Computed example of a mutant assay.
Amino acid sequence: MNNDHIISIENVTKRFKDGEGEFTALDNINLTFEKGEFAAFIGPSGSGKTTLLNIIGSLDSPTEGSALVMGKDIAHLNHKESALLRNKHIGFIFQVYNLLPVYTVFENVEFALLLQDYTAEQRKKMVMDALDWVGLADIPNKKPSKLSGGQGQRVAIARAMVKRPEILIADEPTANLDAENAHGILKTMKQLNKELQTTFLFATHDEKVMAYMDRIVHLQDGRIKENEIINRKEVKS
């Protein structure tokens, strides 16, 4: 793998069983991503966006081809190795926040660290740093039921970023937010991208999300239709 490439996808095809036949979700995909990119997969439903994110996130593996993530070949990882890659190096944000309702904001964010070798004092600092990044350091003891939609998604970002992952995967992260909250969330993620050099990869239909991207990969019928590099200096709200 090229040292500049945090993700390298070569000739990746993904097929799923469909009745007695097969459905090709991805068809001979070739892509690379460098550290610190802020990029999105866009396309109609069924174009392969989520399937590609799942492979990069080691939640699935290709039928053919190779997907190297952090130097690891996804197709050759066992269950334990895949989990280790996700736990240490990849964060996930989805349109449904999946916050644990019986736990506080602090505890929801801390949950991402409990399987790792940190002391309670280290975890506390990491969690409060993450909450500070997303502007929620003043409400660590609130329960999810007391949060607005925008606050809930900010907690989800803090939970994904608390371990400072090299890669963050966001699948339709603004789908349930109004325009004001969506812009706030996107500005927060863009700032974290700059400060921490985390590679952000989105799947989206949302034009508000596309306006923040430095690169947009257009997918159609499981193939790359266009790989668009955008020289964007500033995004206006």
Rank of each mutant, 00 (worst) to 15 (best):
A120I: 09
Y97K: 08
L115V: 06
I90T: 06
Y118C: 00
A120H: 08
I139V: 15
T119K: 02
W133P: 02
L99W: 07
N98C: 04
L131Y: 08
L114E: 07
F106V: 00
V127E: 11
H89V: 03
K124M: 04
E121Q: 11
K124L: 04
V134G: 14
A112K: 03
D129W: 06
A137S: 15
A120Y: 09
D132N: 14
I93F: 10
Q116T: 03
V105W: 12
D132H: 14
V109F: 09
E107D: 14
Y103A: 01
L100R: 01
V109E: 07
Q95Y: 02
E110V: 01
M128S: 09
D138A: 14
L100M: 15
H89T: 05
I90C: 08
P140D: 11
R123K: 11
I90D: 06
V102M: 12
A130H: 03
Y118R: 00
A112P: 03
T119Y: 10
P140L: 10
L115G: 09
Q116L: 11
F106L: 01
Q95R: 09
V102L: 11
L113F: 10
Q95K: 09
T104H: 06
K124V: 06
F111R: 03
V109P: 04
G91W: 11
Y103I: 01
A137L: 03
D129S: 11
V134T: 06
R123V: 11
K124W: 10
M128I: 12
E107M: 06
V134I: 05
A112N: 04
M128V: 08
L115M: 11
N141E: 14
A130I: 00
I139P: 03
A137N: 14
F106G: 02
L100E: 01
L100K: 03
V105S: 12
M128E: 12
I139W: 06
F106T: 03
D117W: 10
V96I: 13
K125F: 10
D117E: 14
T104S: 15
L100T: 01
F94V: 05
V96H: 12
D129H: 13
W133L: 02
F106N: 01
Y97P: 02
E107I: 04
V134K: 12
D138Q: 14
L131H: 08
E107A: 10
I139H: 06
E110C: 02
M128Y: 13
A120K: 14
H89G: 05
D129M: 02
E107L: 07
